[in-house]
Computed example of a mutant assay.
Amino acid sequence: MRLLSPSNLASDFSRHLRPAAHIAMLRREVLDSFLRSRAQSQGAHLLPALLTSLSLPSSPLHPYLLHYIPSGAGAGAGPATSTLAVDVVVGADGANSRVARCIGAGDYSTAIAFQERVRLPPAGMAAYADLAEMYVGDDVSPDFYAWVFPKCDHVAVGTGTAAAKPAIRRLQAAARARAAPKLAGGVVVRVEAHPIPEHPRPRRVAGRAALVGDAAGYVARCSGEGIYFAAKSGRMCGDAIVRIWKEKGRVAEADLKREYLRRWDEEFAGTFRFLDALQRVFYGSNAAREALVELCGDEYVQRMTFDSYLHKKMAAGRPLDDLGLLWKSAGSLLRATILGREVERLRSL
């Protein structure tokens, strides 16, 4: 993992990964297909369809009614809507979740992630065989980062922002420019954009309906990682439903909040708050980003970061080292700020 500052100062951020540890890169089109097939092999009944609305039950004993259009329906005569009655709903339908809207889960702010899949010549792909890059700077994002991530036989080149969504194509062009020498000869094979939640929704459980993944707003600030938390929340919610059903024979809102939400918040809420604070401190200006890249060269920073990242919980630090890191952080921020001001002064002359 290589992090590059606004001035293109590079920090090889994974020099201190523990033996056999690695950062996984996923192709969602492959992973999602695998998960669906595995669910079906374990007894799930798949209904490829578009959910149009959700009718809420009139009492705790009545079912939810899911209204949907089956895939392939409506050719010629208009879409034919079908209805399915269910006891419990788990909304895993992304940042623009229809389930969330139907249950009144509330709004949240979102960022936009824009990326191009680029197929590189063999020499270019060889350079990214075991390398992922992150670029920070106002040119590529005012509040996040840009990336070049390997995806088996191609790379994903993209950027994200919540503050400058209308400028996303300009920011993407800047990201391509920063990595241009390494992308020479590449051919864009796909362009895609997705909303990314900035924080959890106000309500993640309502009645016998629960939200998981992006629908619930489980995306880590600073890194933008969502796939682990989507999978983990789905499993935690499913396990909770099974436990409640076996014990009581039915599911209620209080049970879901206790068995799913409380356990989720106990395990991950602190991590999310800490990453939110880091993003606010280090992604707010080019001076702070320069300081971030400088700090990422520190061995203790790298060990703490990867121990936390790989195990998805805050690693236990050493008090004296933590004090030293606080001092280094303050020094790096101050130095970068002073240098930034001097550069701006010289530019104005």
Rank of each mutant, 00 (worst) to 15 (best):
I241G: 00
G94A: 09
V140G: 00
C102N: 14
N96G: 14
A24M: 09
G104P: 02
I168F: 12
Q302I: 03
F229K: 05
L261D: 01
V188T: 12
S82F: 08
K313S: 13
G78V: 10
M25F: 15
L35M: 15
L261F: 01
F229T: 01
A113D: 00
G91N: 02
Y128W: 13
P70D: 07
G186K: 00
R101N: 12
L171R: 01
A210R: 01
T305L: 11
C222V: 11
D93A: 05
Y108L: 13
K232H: 10
G270F: 03
V99P: 01
V187L: 13
L4E: 11
R203K: 14
S97W: 01
L171C: 08
Y68W: 03
R98Y: 01
W147C: 09
P63T: 06
A230I: 06
K151H: 09
G185H: 07
V219M: 05
A24E: 14
Y228D: 08
R263A: 11
L17H: 04
G234R: 02
Y135C: 08
A146Y: 00
L349S: 13
L339K: 13
L183K: 05
A77T: 11
A100S: 04
G91H: 00
G185Y: 02
R243N: 06
T271N: 10
D32Q: 07
H194D: 10
N286R: 09
I103L: 02
L346W: 08
R347T: 06
F34L: 15
R18S: 13
I244D: 01
G331M: 07
P150S: 11
K313V: 09
F34H: 15
S58V: 13
P70M: 12
L256H: 02
P19A: 09
G324K: 10
G186E: 03
P122V: 02
D322N: 15
R36W: 11
L3E: 06
V86A: 13
R318K: 09
R170C: 09
M236N: 01
S348L: 11
Y68F: 10
R101P: 03
D32I: 05
E342A: 10
V188R: 08
R235I: 14
S55Q: 15
V343P: 00
A216E: 03
Y283G: 00
R258N: 03
E294C: 05
I227D: 02
